[in-house]
């Protein structure tokens, strides 16, 4: 089972596809869950504390806004653990505020910079594109070490 980073990090489709074909999807929910289930100081809504922008310095320079560094503290460790990545390039839903948008740019840069296998996709707009979308994800995942099989 390989760890696959998914972008958009909240994607239902990618999360399901990766798990369905026998691998572990790395998305935002894992980082959020870790914080929500860790005792400490109350810092709603996401339990992101003033410590997180300091941790984010591992992935972003000190002059980068703290909003981006805080988000990187959640998503950065997932990139470090990822063995491959699947990216949907026309995901407007991932835009959010400027903090999210800039973090997304940094995420995509770091993923490509790491040199791990990356599958670039766009959302399917027809039945034919849907077939290619699903089959491409399965082929990509089967080529990875310890590839899973479709159900």
């Amino acid at each position: 089972m390989a760890k696959i980073f998914i972008y958009p990090t909240t994607s239902l489709i990618l999360s399901d596809m990766v798990a369905r074909f026998g691998h572990e999807p790395l998305g935002a929910a894992l980082g959020i869950r870790e914080r929500i289930q860790t005792a400490g100081f109350d810092s709603p809504p996401l339990q992101v504390t003033p410590e997180e922008p300091k941790k984010g310095l591992r992935w972003a320079a000190v002059e980068v806004p703290s909003g981006v560094r805080g988000r990187m503290a959640i998503l950065g460790p997932l990139i470090d653990h990822a063995e491959a990545a699947i990216i949907i390039n026309d995901a407007d839903l991932a835009f959010g505020c400027m903090g999210c948008a800039r973090t997304n740019e940094l995420l995509l840069f770091l993923l490509r910079h790491r040199g791990i296998p990356v599958l670039d996709l766009t959302y399917p707009r027809s039945e034919e594109e849907g077939e290619i979308f699903v089959a491409a994800i399965r082929e990509f995942l089967e080529k990875l070490p310890k590839g899973g099989k479709a159900e």
Partner: peptide, 25 residues
């Protein structure tokens, strides 16, 4: 968009062995 994904999953079994989706992409 999920109906296209459902269609794609159902079509997986029908895909021919030599027909690479990554090449099609």
């Amino acid at each position: 968009l999920i109906r296209f994904i459902s269609g794609g999953l159902e079509a997986l079994a029908r895909r021919e062995a030599g027909d690479s989706a990554l090449d099609a992409l």
